[in-house]
Amino acid sequence: MIELDTMDRAILRALVADATQSASALGRKLGLSQPATWRRIRRLEEAGVITGRRLELDAEKLGFGVTVFLGVKLATKGRVSLEDFERAISAIPEVQTVEHILGVFDYRLRVVARDITDFERILRRRIMMLPGVGDVEANVLLSEERRPGPIG
């Protein structure tokens, strides 16, 4: 585990807010030189604290107005391997995340659709047709507040 000082944490908070910032701009905000900022960011990347920078898309503006969290319980765990299910479910483009969880369900999926009718089509024709799918529970997302993880 890497030791993080207050400046490391400030850099992480700033990058979580806007990962497109240059080391120069970030350094100016935090009172560091560009090389010092770059070295700190590089150290955090090498230690695995920063694992990448991702592009965030607005699903609604792309025509996907409905997000559904789907709990999936596999009916026949012995007959279908978890890897086979994960590979098959990940091939469905509307499935944004696949989380293997502990609890009532085996998986939690984040699925985007154009509308409820489109979601029903995806559920009936794509997800429910996968081998091993048993119980399913859907929760429609009403609103979302984006909160970054704890940085301290």
Rank of each mutant, 00 (worst) to 15 (best):
L141E: 15
V95Y: 01
V112N: 03
T6C: 06
D135V: 10
R125M: 14
I151Y: 05
M128L: 14
R125F: 10
R28S: 04
G149E: 09
Q96H: 08
K29S: 13
I122K: 00
K61T: 07
R43E: 05
W38Q: 11
E45S: 05
L70C: 14
L102A: 14
L70K: 00
L12H: 08
D106C: 02
R87P: 01
E137T: 09
R147S: 12
A59W: 03
L57D: 07
L141T: 15
M1S: 08
E94K: 01
A75T: 06
T97H: 05
E3Y: 14
E83A: 15
Q96A: 05
L74S: 00
E3F: 10
G152Y: 11
R40K: 11
R54F: 13
R108A: 10
L57I: 15
V98C: 06
K77G: 01
T117A: 15
S143Q: 08
G71L: 05
S90A: 14
G152T: 09
G52V: 10
L44W: 00
M128H: 13
R43D: 05
A113N: 05
E120N: 05
P35R: 07
D18S: 04
P93N: 08
P93L: 06
F69S: 13
R28A: 07
A138E: 11
T67P: 07
E144W: 01
P93E: 07
A59M: 06
Q21V: 15
A91P: 12
L55V: 13
R114I: 12
D106W: 00
S90F: 01
E3N: 12
G132D: 02
S81K: 14
S22G: 06
L142R: 08
R124T: 13
Y107V: 12
V66Q: 14
M129F: 04
A36E: 02
K29R: 14
V68Q: 01
A88Q: 07
G65N: 14
L30S: 12
A19M: 06
S24G: 14
R146N: 12
A25S: 12
R28F: 02
P148W: 09
D5S: 07
K29G: 10
P93I: 04
